[in-house]
Amino acid sequence: MKKIDAHAHYGVWNFPIPHCGTVDNLLRLCDKHDVAHAVCSSGLAILYDMEEGNAEMAEIVAEHEQLLGYVYVNPNFIPESIAEMERYLPEDGFVGVKIYTAGYSGVPADAPIFEDMVAEVARYASAMLIHTYDIEVGRTLAGYAEKHPGLNFIMGHAAAMDSDQAAKLARTHPNMYLEFCSSWAGKGKVERAIDICGAEQILYGSDMDLIDPAFIIGMFEDAGLTEEQKQMIYYDNAARLFGLL
């Protein structure tokens, strides 16, 4: 079944991953797993240099229709992030914004500058991917989701082991989505999320080429989904969200 991967990266990871950080590897994984589009953010932008990474991403999405881009924004550099959104979001290949909480930027989700950054993103974009490693971040995002109903919040990793609670947030916030890529393949989490918030707010994402799509697809394929649910999760929900219909 054709897929849209809502969580991919272009860039090097310092782990033993052969061919990691190459366009060829991303395209190979897309073809292997029937991924029509992978929405990528730049590892270089996240880990080191926002502007250089977004520029690199722009070149790649311009050359490869299969790869789409998130503009990476950094709450430490709000004016510069606004300039990045103004520069890249009008381009065809970019479909949303990516932001990190605490870890890489050092800014927690409930920090005032993070909130200011989200407000700016809401002015420019309709979809934003945020890593959520636990429900605390999810709860903060729910507050932002209420303030900015026009911005769709994709909870990357679906709050990991707190995914049931993340699904409850999605149930009451139509602009919050769950994206389940994770090394923690906790059995039953997808089925429970569907029970709680329905399949309409769940997106397929892999975290490739850090995580192999096979691992995440294996999880979904094991979850006893109906064909209709798979179609929504693998493709339709993301197509709607990213304006790809």
């Binding site: 923690w184 393949a185 059995k187 192999d212 294996g218």
Partner: peptide, 11 residues
């Protein structure tokens, strides 16, 4: 049964 069998198997 803690994890999805399919994830590890698919790899």
């Amino acid at each position: 049964p803690d994890r999805y069998f399919g994830a590890a198997y698919a790899m």
